[in-house]
């Protein structure tokens, strides 16, 4: 819980701009927390943020919105964070979807349970905003790289396919000429 140095201004998180277009979903039943996170994310430069206070709607919104990162509370009425975690993991499949769990439950077993259920990171409330933003940035960077890798892989696959058909064509030509 370190207080910010005096000279920090709006540019306190320089690499935030990189991820400003990344989509964030906040799932927390406590309106004050949601408001706090919204303000923090807004300050951090995120422009595409969706918040959910009714956990029953969480999955629906996530499927529609296709977030790049999820901030998730654990203790919620109706559907708790653990089941949401499992659903998220099931929905995300092989792709890398970072989920940061934010909870006031200081119990060690809760933390391990959340990580085992597939949480990417775990932070205890009250949290330090800078820490949350930095961790988010790290995970989004990884997400970006993953996506990039996927795109490149797809591009390579296309290139290989193209090259293969070219080669095949060339082979056909060659056979024809030999004949």
């Amino acid at each position: 819980m370190n207080s910010e140095p005096e000279n920090v201004d709006q540019r306190w998180l320089p690499n935030a701009a990189l991820f400003s277009k990344m989509k964030i979903v906040v799932i927390d039943d406590e309106p004050a927390n949601v408001a706090l996170l919204e303000a923090m994310l807004d300050e951090g430069g995120y422009t595409r943020v969706k918040t959910v206070t009714d956990s029953r709607l969480a999955m629906e919104i996530c499927v529609d919105f296709e977030p790049d990162l999820v901030l998730l509370d654990l203790m919620m009425p109706h559907v708790d964070g653990f089941s949401i975690l499992e659903s998220l993991r099931a929905a995300a499949g092989e792709s890398f979807l970072p989920v940061i769990v934010l909870t006031a439950d200081a119990n060690e077993t809760t933390k391990l349970r959340a990580l085992r259920a597939g949480a990417t990171d775990f932070l205890l409330k009250p949290f330090d905003q800078l820490e949350v933003l930095l961790r988010m940035a790290n995970l989004l960077e990884t997400r970006r790289l993953h996506l990039q890798l996927d795109t490149q892989l797809a591009a390579y696959a296309d290139a290989v396919r193209e090259r293969t058909s070219e080669l095949r064509e060339a082979q056909v030509q060659l056979q024809k000429s030999e004949c």
């Binding site: 819980m1 207080s3 910010e4 920090v8 201004d9 306190w12 406590e30 004050a32 927390n33 706090l36 303000a39 923090m40 300050e43 203790m75 006031a104 439950d105 200081a106 119990n107 205890l124 409330k125 009250p126 949290f127 330090d128 905003q129």
Partner: peptide, 23 residues
């Protein structure tokens, strides 16, 4: 454990908005 949870939740808002105000 419950108390800790119940106390941390409002504290999060207090310290969180405090941090926002500071900036």
């Amino acid at each position: 454990s419950r108390m800790s949870h119940e106390l941390r939740t409002p504290l999060n808002a207090i310290l969180g908005f405090g941090q926002l105000l500071e900036r």
